[in-house]
């Protein structure tokens, strides 16, 4: 169940659009934030509030890369490996996350501390390689500083 405050937030979002269906993407973001991932309950909540069938909501959500379709760790590491990051060593960083934390792409560490999502360009090419941890940008990554940065996320 969503709290009164969240229902109010969703109703305000709904007002930004000419119809309820158009508010689907932001509503899915809110549900994901509240439930931690897009659980059956999350789709239920979106569907109830916007009057959009659950199957439609799920069909739309699965099209987009940034929605989470399974439970995630406490900190989500979005690491870019596209060309500008790749030619400056991003693949080595993927290996380092595996060596240091046993963290593999599209997985979560057993202690629930980190999930790793490989990204397709996060627009930080001039300071590559780069990652987003939750909503924090970190760039000019090296094999050393990536661990230092991640150690501050518990």
């Amino acid at each position: 169940m969503l709290s009164e405050a969240v229902i109010k937030e969703l109703e305000e979002i709904r007002q930004r659009y000419p119809n309820a269906r158009a508010a689907l993407l932001p509503a899915i973001y809110i549900a994901q934030r509240e439930f931690g991932w897009l659980s059956p309950e999350a789709y239920e909540a979106v569907s109830d509030i916007l009057g959009v069938p659950k199957t439609i909501a799920r069909g739309v959500a699965t099209f987009y890369a940034m929605y989470k379709h399974k439970p995630m760790g406490r900190n989500i590491v979005h690491l870019c490996t596209n060309v500008s990051c790749m030619i400056l060593g991003a693949e080595r960083l993927v290996d380092i996350l595996k060596e240091r934390y046993g963290l593999e792409p599209n997985s979560t560490t057993p202690d629930g501390r980190f999930s790793l999502v490989i990204m397709e360009c996060i627009g930080a090419c001039g300071t590559a390689p780069a990652m987003l941890v939750n909503t924090d940008f970190h760039d000019n990554l090296t094999q050393e500083n990536i661990i230092q940065i991640l150690e501050s996320y518990k």
């Binding site: 659009y17 269906r21 158009a22 508010a23 689907l24 993407l25 932001p26 899915i28 973001y29 959009v52 069909g59 739309v60 959500a61 099209f63 987009y64 890369a65 940034m66 929605y67 990204m119 397709e120």
Partner: peptide
């Protein structure tokens, strides 16, 4: 402001419009 959700194709203007209507891009 409408936040996208990680789909390159939504930079194509008609896909962007579809996405802003709450659909697949």
């Amino acid at each position: 402001v409408h936040q996208g959700a990680g789909a390159y194709i939504c930079g194509e203007e008609t896909a962007l419009i579809e996405s802003l209507e709450g659909k697949k891009g």
